[in-house]
Amino acid sequence: MTNEAQSVAEAVVGEPAIEKQPFNLLVWMSSRGIFVFTTVLVVVAAIFIDGFASLDNITDVFNRAAPIGIVAVGMTFVVISANYLDLSVVAQVATAAVVLIAVSNESNIPAAMALAFVIALLYGLVNGVAVGVFKANAVIVTLSTTFIGLGILRWFSGGSIYFGPQDGAIRSFGLAKIGPFPLSMIVLILMTLILSFVLTRTNFGFLVRSYGSNRDATRLAGVNTAWVVIGAFTITSIAAMIGGFVLGAFSNTAVSSMSTGFDFRALAAIIVGGTSVFGGRGSVLRTLLGVVFVSVLTNIMVLSGLGFGVQQMAIGALIVAAVSIDSLARKASGT
């Protein structure tokens, strides 16, 4: 439509000018569907899948969900800022795990954590500056930092596997439970609550949402948008670091290849949770639901004897389906 035509159209619509949106299944699925889908999936699994409802299995689901979930709630910031995703979380998670175990073997845990933290900040800064200042495409930027990061990690580690001491603090953290909940699950929930607070209640989170919704309007409101992007990537990096700690602690081993697939599992959780890849819309809490959905789905496939390949196919298809629904819903609601 030409500007002229659009202006005329707007002029005549007049006021009060809010149309009642009729119910649209696609819109509903992309925004609220996750609550229902997750519930249905869990109920169906509990009824039909042998071994799903056992305590051991549920603990296992939690243990596996926690590191991916922590990464996903962090990466939600990058997705909401309309920068697609951060592929380099794969390198970041493995680096954090290896640093935690390898460095604490050599010296001590705080030193390991401090080093990992510096690395996380570096990742956030490099990705954020390349995307936020140089306006480079986030997918390509994080693809290259993935290779740089994994290359450095393998170079230093020589690809070897690091084992933590059997009686160390890391090990006991990895095994710790509160009731049926592993400690890692508590970390995930804490991270979710904190990041949800950051996204919805702080100045910074507000700017991330605003930037994702309309970066020009945000810039023209006088916002330093480069810092917003750097911040979103840094939060993702810090979450990836914590995810790496949890992953390393749970297995008490660390190797550079341990986080394969974290990138797309996290993305799947975020998108299925209803955060739009077009930016601006999304929620950390719903990402948590997305994590539950993806983890339960994976667990069902494992219990049904389906291999890694089928799991990947399913999650790839899930991403495309969820984005298709989001895209079609946008067309339907005309935004």
Partner: peptide, 13 residues
Amino acid sequence: LGMLFFLRGAAFV
């Protein structure tokens, strides 16, 4: 990207 993950899985299968 979705296709990338899907096909990676398909190759395994």
